[in-house]
Design a protein around this nucleic acid. Structure first.
Length: 356
DNA sequence: AAAACGGGGAG
DNA sequence: CTCCCAGTTTT
């Protein structure tokens, strides 16, 4: 193992020295910034997270500013990035770091992983990048590279396999250059050992890659299990009363928790406005016969990992205030709230003249 | 152990 | 259209 290890590790580091990809958080010393970048990049492509990282840092330059901000402000900065529990956990961790660690991120894997939103990957990433601790990251890139190089035909879908890849990665890491090694292997996965159409021709590991030698590169790692999608139909009520409309925060265990929305009626298929009038939410939001349907939108669609969302927006003129549970907003203040992508795209097309 | 959780880009 | 991305939490 040790000669294989030195070869693999040396090649990866050698490659990295010649193919450095500059990114704002590379070589970063501030653990706060490293932490933020790692949370933002969970299941998120670098190019997608980049603008959010810059914007977020401008608004919350250090852990104290973040800890003192409101949840809604944090969500607003996260709006559109997805996996919103990351923002909630980031905020919660900021408060814990201020309260228990004097505003400094803890400098050990063991303490890091206890913070909300920090799992095995992120704890290793912060430990190595911020503190030089030799803890190997195992992300999608590392899993794929090791699966191919050692021809390990296993997914990381249970703790045993997870442990297998983690142990292997920790044998391969260069303990004197932990940060560089972790950076290098992930960059290598992003640039050369791609999930689809890997660039084996220019690969410096080709000679000893078990998958390449057995012509199984395209079968490793094995395909994941299919996920079944369900279709959901959201009927949003844009109730307009004296230049204001009404929203609330989603708090139930469902998608988009802590984002805001209009009064909404969900059905198992697309319904007409007339048929949703029977729903009990109507009684809460609209006075009997004291409203008028101005118009309805086209069908907005959004694909999520486990769901297909279909939404219709009904613009309704009403003569009465609605229940206090709903927050009135005008066309200006509505921009301060964080909405799901499907509502945001509706608003970006309609909002400005909607309420006047 | 399995399912849930967003959104976007590449092929 | 499918797959997957610097994964974690909840069930």
């Amino acid at each position: 193992m040790s000669s294989i290890k030195t070869y693999f590790t040396r090649q990866i580091l050698q490659w990295h020295s010649e193919h450095f990809r500059p990114m704002p958080w590379k070589g970063e010393k501030d653990p706060y910034k490293i932490w933020l970048s790692e949370i933002m990049l969970q299941q998120t492509r670098v190019a997608q997270g980049m603008p959010y990282y810059q914007k977020f840092l401008k608004r919350f330059p250090d852990v104290y500013v973040l800890a003192n901000a409101s949840m809604d402000e944090v969500m607003k900065q996260w709006e559109g990035l997805g996996y919103y529990s990351r923002a909630r956990h980031l905020h919660a961790s900021a408060k814990l770091i201020v309260k228990h660690f004097d505003g400094h991120l803890p400098a050990s894997y063991k303490e890091l992983i206890r913070l909300p939103g920090i799992g095995p990957y992120t704890a290793s990433a912060i430990a190595s990048f911020a503190y030089g601790i030799p803890s190997a990251v195992v992300d999608g890139n590392v899993h794929r590279i090791l699966s191919r190089y050692f021809a390990i035909n296993k997914l990381i879908d249970n703790s045993k396999n997870k442990q297998l890849f983690t142990a292997l990665a920790n044998q391969l890491i260069d303990r004197q250059q932990a940060a560089a090694y972790n950076q290098a292997i992930m960059d290598f996965g992003a640039d050369v050992c791609l999930a689809k159409n890997p660039n084996c021709k220019s690969c410096i590991l080709e000679k000893h890659c078990q998958a390449y030698r057995s012509n199984t590169v395209n079968h490793l790692p094995p395909p994941r299990k299919r996920i079944k999608k369900r279709n959901r139909f959201f009927h949003y009520l844009i109730i307009i009363n004296e230049g204001k409309t009404f929203i609330r925060k989603r708090t139930e265990q469902d998608i988009w928790k802590n984002l805001w929305e209009f009064p909404m009626i969900e059905t198992t298929e697309l319904k007409s406005f007339k048929s949703i009038l029977a729903h009990k939410l109507i009684n809460e939001c609209l006075p009997v016969q004291q409203f008028e349907l101005i118009k309805q939108s086209r069908i907005y669609k959004q694909q999520l990992t486990h769901q297909n969302i279909n939404a219709v927006f009904y613009m309704i003129k009403s003569n009465n205030q609605i229940a206090r549970a709903w927050q009135p907003v005008d066309s200006k203040s509505i921009l301060n709230f964080a909405f799901p992508g499907i509502i945001h795209s509706f608003l970006s097309e309609k909002t400005l003249h909607l309420l006047n």
